[in-house]
C-alpha cells in the first residue's frame, strides 16, 4: 500500500523568477538561480513511500535533503516558497495546502518528525516523560495513568531507563535525548516517521545503538520512515531504498545496496568512493 505520494516538490528561498528551476540543479551545478539569486533548495522531486518501508535521503550539506524531508513531514517554513503535491493514504487532496488544524492533526497522529536538533524537538525543561506526554495529550488523551503507562512502554521500547522518566530532559545524555525524541515520535503510533539526521551530535558508539533501536522498533511496529542523513552508513543500515540528492535535485534513486555497490550517477560514485 502506498502511504505517501509526492510530486514535483519544490522549496525556494528568495523572490523567484521564471528561470529559477531551469537554471539550477545538478546540470547547472548550483542551487542558486543566477538570474534572481533565489536558492532553489529542492525541485522536481517525486517520490513515494510504501507502508512500513524505510526510504533514505542522502546528500551533502545544502543538497536539499532536509528541505525535502520538511515538506514531507508537513513542517512549514515561513521564509520559504513551496510548491508541489503530497498525497497521503486516507486523506483527500494535497497535504501541502491543508489548513493548520488538519496539519496539526496529521502531525500529532499519522506523521511524526524527529528533528535534527534536539532543541527543536524537545523542551529540555520538561521531564523526559513530559516530552512524550505532550504528544499524547495533544492527541486528546486525558487519563494521567494511561499517559504514564504509555510513556513507560515507550521508554522501555526505546531503551531509556524508565526510572529516569521524571527527571528533567536537560539532565539526559545526548543519546537518551535522541531516544526521547524517537519515543515521542512513536507515541501516537504514526504510520510515517521522518528522521532528520538522526545521529547528529551523538558519539559513534551511541549512534550505533540508537540506529539499531530505531531499526528494531521500526520493523516491529511496521512504521514507515524517511531517514535523512549526510552519512551513507546511517542510510545503509536503515533504508530499503535510497534517494541521492545534489544541488536540490534527486540525482539517483534505488535499492540502498544497489546505490552503494552499483552507483550509476557520477556524483553518487564520487560520494560512495569518498567514504573513509
Amino acid at each position: 500500500m502506498t502511504l505517501l505520494e509526492a510530486r514535483d516538490l519544490q522549496t525556494r528561498y528568495g523572490p523567484g523568477c521564471p528561470r529559477c528551476v531551469e537554471s539550477t540543479g545538478d546540470r547547472a551545478g548550483t542551487n542558486q538561480c543566477p538570474h534572481c539569486g533565489s536558492v532553489v533548495a529542492c525541485a522536481d522531486a517525486d517520490l513515494s513511500v510504501e507502508a512500513g518501508e524505510v526510504v533514505g535521503i542522502v546528500g551533502e550539506s545544502g543538497s536539499g535533503k532536509s528541505s525535502l524531508a520538511e515538506l514531507l513531514a508537513l513542517e512549514r517554513d515561513d521564509d520559504a516558497t513551496t510548491a508541489g503535491e503530497v498525497h497521503y493514504a486516507g486523506h483527500d487532496g494535497n497535504l501541502l495546502e491543508v489548513d493548520y488544524e488538519t496539519r496539526h492533526d496529521l502531525r500529532t497522529g499519522e506523521i511524526a518528525l524527529v528533528h535534527q536538533h534536539i532543541r527543536d524537538g524537545l523542551n529540555l525543561e520538561f521531564t523526559g516523560g513530559g516530552n512524550v506526554a505532550e504528544k499524547l495529550l495533544s492527541a486528546g488523551q486525558r487519563s494521567y495513568e494511561d499517559v504514564r503507562a504509555r510513556i513507560r512502554e515507550l521508554f522501555d521500547e526505546t531503551e531509556i531507563p524508565v526510572a529516569r522518566m521524571d527527571d528533567p530532559t536537560s539532565t539526559y545524555s545526548g543519546g537518551m535525548q535522541r531516544r526521547v525524541q524517537i519515543a515521542r515520535a512513536l507515541a501516537t503510533d504514526p504510520d510515517l516517521v521522518v528522521l532528520d539526521e538522526p545521529t547528529t551530535g551523538l558519539d559513534v558508539s551511541v549512534q550505533a545503538r540508537v540506529l539499531d533501536m530505531f531499526r528494531r522498533v521500526q520493523r516491529e511496529e511496521g512504521v514507515a520512515a524517511i531517514v535523512v542523513s549526510h552519512d551513507l552508513s546511517v542510510v545503509r543500515l536503515l533504508a530499503d531504498r535510497t534517494l541521492v540528492m545534489r544541488h536540490g535535485r534527486i540525482v539517483e534513486s534505488g535499492l540502498t545496496d544497489r546505490i552503494m555497490e552499483d552507483p550509476h550517477h557520477e556524483y553518487t560514485q564520487t560520494l560512495i568512493n569518498s567514504v573513509i
Binding site: F126, G130, A133, E134, L137, Y144, V147
Partner: peptide, 11 residues
C-alpha cells in the same frame, strides 16, 4: 491547541 498546558499539568 492546548497540548503545552496539558504537559504543564502533567509535570
Amino acid at each position: 491547541n492546548y497540548g503545552k498546558m496539558w504537559v504543564h499539568l502533567y509535570e
